[in-house]
Simulated assay, not measured.
Amino acid sequence: MREVGDLYVALQERRESGARQPLRELGRRWRLLHRRLSTRRSLLQLDASQLADIGLTAEQARAEATRPFWRLLR
């Protein structure tokens, strides 16, 4: 029983210290990746005038939209 109490105390200390929990961090990074993927996918749907409004050329939009997913988390 002592181990369970020690685990509880350790979790409470971690929660109080503001340290991120691994699953929450994973969820946060997954949401970030999903948002970036969908945003970049949307770039491919914009026409030339819409791209000009945001200051991008078609080539820049295509290059950004086709970046490898592992580079999106940087």
Results as ranks from 00 to 15, higher is better:
Trp70His: 14
Leu72Trp: 10
Glu13Met: 10
Trp70Ala: 03
Ser17His: 05
Glu3Pro: 00
Leu33Thr: 01
Ser17Leu: 04
Val4Leu: 15
Leu46Ala: 01
Arg36His: 11
Glu25Arg: 05
Gln45Ile: 05
Ala10Trp: 09
Arg71Asn: 06
Arg71Phe: 06
Trp70Asn: 09
Leu37Ala: 10
Glu59Ser: 10
Asp53Pro: 00
Ala65Asn: 03
Glu64Lys: 13
Ser38Ile: 10
Arg40Val: 03
Ala58Tyr: 00
Leu51Ile: 05
Glu59Ala: 14
Thr39His: 13
Arg71Thr: 14
Met1Thr: 08
His34Ser: 14
Gln12Gly: 04
His34Asp: 14
Leu33Met: 09
Gly5Arg: 07
Ser42Gln: 13
Arg14Pro: 01
Gln12Asn: 08
Thr57Phe: 06
Arg74Met: 03
Asp53Gly: 13
Arg74Cys: 03
Val9Phe: 08
Arg36Pro: 02
Leu32Phe: 12
Leu46Met: 14
Pro68Leu: 09
Asp53Trp: 01
Glu64Thr: 11
Gln12Phe: 10
Arg15Gln: 13
Ala63Thr: 10
Ala58Leu: 05
Arg74Leu: 08
Ala48Thr: 07
Leu73Glu: 12
Tyr8Trp: 10
Leu32Pro: 02
Gln50Trp: 05
Arg20Phe: 03
Thr66Met: 15
Leu7Asn: 13
Leu32Asn: 11
Gln45Asp: 14
Ala19Pro: 01
Gly27Pro: 00
Glu13Tyr: 05
Ser17Glu: 10
Arg2Phe: 01
Arg28Ile: 08
Asp47Tyr: 01
Leu26Glu: 07
Glu16Cys: 00
Ile54Cys: 12
Ser38Arg: 15
Arg2Pro: 05
Ala58Met: 04
Ser17Gly: 01
Gly18Met: 06
Leu43Gln: 07
Glu25Trp: 04
Gln60Pro: 03
Arg62Ile: 01
Ala52Met: 03
Arg74Tyr: 02
Glu25Cys: 04
Trp30Gln: 12
Glu64Ala: 15
Glu16Trp: 04
Leu37Gln: 10
Arg31Glu: 06
Arg35Leu: 14
Leu26Pro: 00
Arg40Asp: 05
Asp6Pro: 00
Trp70Ser: 04
Gln45Thr: 10
Arg2Asp: 11
Leu73Cys: 07
Tyr8Gly: 02
Trp70Leu: 09
Arg67Gln: 15
Leu72Val: 09
